[in-house]
Write a protein that binds this DNA or RNA. Sequence first.
DNA 1: TAGAAATGTTTAG
DNA 2: TAAACCTTTCTAT
Length: 269
Amino acid sequence: MPEGHTLFRLARDQSALFAGRPVHVTSPQGRFEAGAALLDGRVLDTVSSYGKHLFARFGADVLHVHLGLYGSYTTGPGTPPAARGALRMRWVADGPDGNGVWTDLRGPTACEVLSDAEVDAILARLGPDPLRPRPDGTRALRRIAASRTPVGALLMDQSVLAGVGNVYRAELLFRHGVSPFRPGRQIEPALWADMWADLVTLMRAGVRMGRIVTTRPEHRSRRRGTVERDDAHYVYRRTGLPCRICGTEVRTEVMVGRNLHWCPTCQAA
DNA sequence: TAGAAATGTTTAG
DNA sequence: TAAACCTTTCTAT
């Protein structure tokens, strides 16, 4: 389930489990055979994320992974299960506790070994990431304030800001009562400052919980305890259901090739 | 068993 | 703007 918070967690967790130790790297599926052979047995330095990109450094070589729409990692202790299906890459190592640890990668858009220069080229085309230390949204505002493009499209553009996907886009716009169709240049600086600060908070919460929850307790069916799946979002994938605040039916329309969800009343054009 | 959908990006036209 | 691509999972027939 890959928006920026997922990659941030993966980087943190993979660093904790594998960094500082030699990693046995394989590609049971075969599509990453050459890269796996190059990295196999080398010591992992660290894993970091930027936006939706994951970078694992092995000396001068960097493994770059992008999960795309449905890539995923599965991680566990001990001996890994027999490889089945389309298993692009497997890591096996002696974990920090001396016992085995493994992680399996399936279905990524990108799984490749890059040089520092190639990594820099990727970073150069990304906007600010709300999950970086001391996040700064002013670079994003510069792009937004200069654009006639609908803000719902700008939020999905990774060169404007990095790490937001279809869920955070819909939910952030709802929380600020902003129509997805409002042109970027009509987003006032003060409004953007609020939206950016909120996004930082929401994504940090996503890192903590391991999932995206954007509703305030007073807008959930159950106000205390675990947030149920049906209660996690205001508009994302709630097409035809009543808005949690005003009761208007939530609408859906494709914007930039993705299903956009919004409340036409709370987010009037 | 087939088909659709899914938290994404790139390339072609 | 549309299509292609990576894979799994859930729903409908």
